[in-house]
């Protein structure tokens, strides 16, 4: 009895892996049987056509990645903007009070310079306020409307105002995706920036960092670590969403699904190809990101995401 237990404990990970495999294969087999069981999967069709889809994947990854990076710039800017305490009429008033006080204490300073200071501050605070409100509106509009509509809107915009580019489906698509993901990433960045403890900024400021370098060297490195998982989510989401670009004439995986072959008899073969491609890419990405997370983890902070296998090994040591 105890021999069996020791054996199980020492070889548990093989059972564990086998179990996982059985579940995955079983599920796939069940789905396969349900959908194509009666007629069989046309492997020859897949062999003939999969290159078409591989080509589409390249377009897709390309569009997604560019849009994602541009969106990141938009997202960081808007997200940071939305954390700023700009709505500070109080702060403006305080600045004006300081100015008034100094004028009282030192009347020798030129009146013209003083006036200029007031005008410049007013412009500065006014601009910040307006820009911030635009940021708020941007996020609400992007989040509040469907991506599909946004893509069609971008297309219509080009047709009406920039007709010479109206046939550049990929370009329009990338712009639409970038703006869309920018809105979502703004919220991710805002959450990340606001989660970093205010004491961190205070400490950085206390040793002479400017606002900008405190952001660069203290807040951002911490915020980025926090938002790796939601940023990954956003990339995967965007990657899948980019297949929508077929409405602009960009050949994506589901173009073929929707146009060419749809319901012509080979539909499940197409599903098989598309599913395999998407899973291959997203699962690979998950692994890469998990490695990144481990690489950048701050020792001693938070709960480490332990690999399943490591837990098993620990149990073995215990036994």
């Amino acid at each position: 009895m105890s021999d069996l237990r020791v054996y199980l404990r020492n070889h548990w990970r093989y059972f564990d892996a086998a179990l996982a495999l059985v579940v995955i294969i079983g599920t796939l087999a069940y789905i396969y049987d349900l959908l194509v069981g009666s007629r069989g999967l046309d492997v020859a069709y897949i062999a003939r056509n999969y290159t078409l889809y591989i080509h589409a994947v390249f377009t897709n990854v390309y569009a997604t990645t560019i849009a994602y990076l541009v969106g990141m710039a938009i997202g960081f800017s808007v997200g940071w903007l939305r954390t700023a305490r700009t709505v500070s009429l109080a702060r403006f008033a305080a600045s004006m009070r300081t100015e008034k006080r100094e004028r009282r204490e030192d009347p020798s300073q030129r009146e013209g310079a003083r006036r200029l200071l007031v005008v410049v501050s007013l412009l500065w605070y006014g601009t910040k306020y307006v820009v911030r409100r635009i940021g708020d509106g941007f996020v609400e509009i992007i989040r509040g409307t469907p991506l599909y509509v946004q893509i069609l809107f971008a297309s219509s915009f080009f047709i009406v105002f920039l007709p010479q580019y109206a046939t550049e489906g990929l370009l329009i698509g990338i712009i639409a995706l970038a703006i869309n993901t920018g809105g979502y990433q703004a919220e991710i960045f805002r959450a990340g920036l606001q989660t970093v403890h205010s004491g961190q900024i205070e400490a950085a400021r206390a040793i002479g960092f400017s606002r900008l370098s405190a952001m660069r060297y203290v807040v951002l490195p911490q915020a980025l670590r926090l938002i790796i998982p939601p940023l990954t989510n956003e990339y995967i989401g965007l990657f899948k969403a980019s297949t929508f670009l077929f409405v602009l004439g960009v050949p994506t995986e589901i173009s073929y699904l929707a146009q060419h072959e749809g319901f012509a008899g080979d539909v499940f073969e197409i599903f098989a190809i598309v599913t395999a491609i998407f899973l291959a890419i997203t699962v690979t990405l998950s692994f890469v990101v998990q490695a990144l997370e481990r690489r950048f983890r701050i020792p001693g902070l938070g709960i480490e995401q332990v690999k399943v296998a490591r837990g098993v090994r620990l149990a073995r040591v215990g036994g």
Binding site: H197, G199, Q200, E202, A203, A206, I207, V218, Q222
Partner: peptide, 17 residues
Amino acid sequence: VREQVGMVFQSFNLFTH
């Protein structure tokens, strides 16, 4: 100014990363 005067906080505020 802040370079001239060092400050130590109640909650340490070491840069966690």
